[in-house]
Amino acid sequence: MAFIRVSSPHLHRPLSTHQVMRYVILATLPGLATLTYLFGWGSLINVLLASAFGLVFEAIVLKMRKRNPMPALKDNSALLTCVLLGLALPPLAPWWMLATGSFVAIVIAKQLYGGLGNNPFNPAMVAYALLLIAFPVEMTQWISPARLLEHTPDLVSSLQAVFGHPQIADAFTMATPLDGFKHKGELMADEYWRQNAFMPEKVWEAWALSSIAFMLGGLFLLWKKIFTWHIPVAFLGSLGLLSLLAYGADASNFASPMIHLFSGATMLGAFFIATDPVTAATSNKGKLWFGAGIGVLVFVIRTWGNYPDAVAFSVLLMNFAAPLIDYYSQPRSFGHKKPRKGIKHDA
């Protein structure tokens, strides 16, 4: 035995960063499986390719930063980022988009800021936003749910679509419900829904199913106490409430709460992206503000903004605000009368 000087505590809960990350990755599996089942191989290829690119970039950039790449690669954080990016991108996205996204997420959004724990913005969402800005057309075309097509793209044609023949993918793609709703033109909402040619019921079903799958994964994490309920509840609550109010006031012009909550990246965002601890607010009160802010922004951008979905932008905007929220949402410490607001320096 060696006599070692270790600071207390000597006991440690058997939970490490890499395990936390692994839990989150595992929790995405139901969603990934559902997506693959409903929309074909695209999402799986996305996730695998993005992960491969991401790990390579992480290793390279860590070498360049003269740090040991192995511990960082083992902590699963890069993997998680790329998995989330792959899930967020439309299936059958071309490989160079995945490469660019992984590069931006890992190198620019994460490592240039100092690596794990130091990035102010959610890396996956930075990459997503960049791709969305740079390639708006590709990013808003989503593959049609499998059951709508006469033949789903098999693995080979999926791979062909990803590597080099985007026109193959074009044949399978269509607008997402949110996109469709955004570009319904002069049609009133109910008219739009009647025109099944634009947005058949089955598309909506597929989106709702995958949303629920993501929600289940999220609930698993909640049960595992990987994160607290505050952010998802505040996010979904504020989004649901706002859309309900708007829908109740004018059902013909606003999308229903169901569309807001169960299509697009809402559930993925609420449970997997907004809850990224590195870039979110920290205190419970702060998390509520943070989540509610995202919900409000999502509703505002979806309703009046240029882009059909808004989770990425909303999360990034609230990432900006997280330090401020932390600043003003400090808890009252034991034995103190009032919580302290911010840091006050003496003049």
Binding site: H12, G117, K287, G335
Partner: peptide, 25 residues
């Protein structure tokens, strides 16, 4: 009591805050 594991970067997960009996950050 295994040997202390190497320190990893803080991921601001906030678990410490949930555990702190003095309600600190």
């Amino acid at each position: 009591f295994p040997d202390p594991e190497p320190e990893n970067p803080c991921i601001r997960c906030g678990m410490c805050e949930q555990a702190c009996p003095a309600e600190l950050l």
